[in-house]
Design a binder for these strands. Structure first.
Lengths: 181, 181
DNA sequence: TCAGACTATGTCAGAAGTGACATAGCCTGG
DNA sequence: CCAGGCTATGTCACTTCTGACATAGTCTGA
């Protein structure tokens, strides 16, 4: 029915009412491990969701040329989201620039490739440390019926991803260092 | 200059001449760990690359309404690809349907969510076994100047990814099982 | 010999996503 | 008091990607 972005917006609104701006902020790196979108896309999608009756809004006075709109999920929106959650996800297309560069890395100067991966490793380690700090703020996993479970579970995914990625980068750096020696 | 898809195509052509059909086959799951695209996109991009002088083609007789076109990378294409490889990749937007579903999973029936993840786990274990078989075919990592290094290194990434993903799914299943008990 | 799979190239409408532009009040610190 | 950042919504042109449609020769096995 709705696009995946629509469900992402509903997933945010399921936690409470928000303006489009708030949703955009929630769906921006490094806050969001679950979906990313720009505000231009979000405002457009909110209009579609409102037209479909999945969200409703209330206009309140606020700064800016227009008044702000506070959105909330309607019962129909909740039904749609709940039904969607347990359906199997579509297989996602693999499109990772770093992996593609790796595939073509045999063409390039190994020292430059090594630097590229060393820098990526640094970034992953940094992000990993950040996620680990965040994880400590949870005192263990929340109950699966708690909204915070969603945050914790996605954070766990991010944590595992950064570890895997850092390890891979470390392996690449090692490969390219031994080639030089 | 070119789009990322353009570089993906060049990365394939760097290994030898190919038809658009061949490239599409190489960039289709589960063959490709490096980039995915449909043939409709690839034929269009090849035309752009040819216009830009990064690839050239030769028409040969083949089946179908049109003759087949065998593409190869030009020296300019090689230069462009080599220069691009060592440039830092753009940060990729996180858009993973399963992670999004996880974020909203607290709303749904835990048993249905458990089944979703059990099925995902099964798929990741299957793919992992497949990748492990493929890895055995390499007798250790090729030299970084060997085209096969690109294949091996991306396979290593896929291997790490599937392991991380499987572990996360296993954790999710455990969380949702204990909730039921 | 004939069905069906595979090789092969392309178009097109539409959806999804990007990046820039536009506009303007509110709040905080120097 | 004023600059600069934050809140806030929106449009628009453009690129990228998807999925369906179209077309037709070759090769293989039943």
């Amino acid at each position: 029915m709705t696009s995946t972005l629509g469900y992402a917006i509903l997933a945010v609104l399921a936690r409470g009412e928000r303006t489009g701006y708030d949703i955009a902020a929630a769906m921006r790196r490094p806050v969001s491990y679950f979906w990313t979108a720009r505000h231009s896309q979000i405002h457009a999608e909110l209009q579609k969701l409102a037209a479909g009756g999945l969200v409703a809004f209330e206009t309140r006075h606020g700064p800016g040329p227009q008044d702000k709109k506070v959105y909330r999920m309607t019962p129909e929106g909740g039904d749609a989201l709940r039904a969607w959650v347990t359906e199997p996800p579509r297989e996602r297309p693999e499109r990772d620039e770093l992996v593609l560069k790796t595939y073509a890395s045999w063409l390039a100067d190994p020292e430059l490739v090594r630097r590229l991966f060393a820098e990526q490793l640094r970034m992953h380690e940094e992000r990993l440390a950040e996620y680990e700090r965040e994880e400590e703020l949870f005192g263990g996993p929340p109950d699966p019926g708690d909204p915070r479970f969603g945050n914790y579970a996605t954070l766990r995914c991010g944590l595992g991803y950064e570890r895997h990625r850092a390890e891979w980068c470390r392996w690449m750096v090692a490969q390219l260092s031994s080639a030089r020696a």
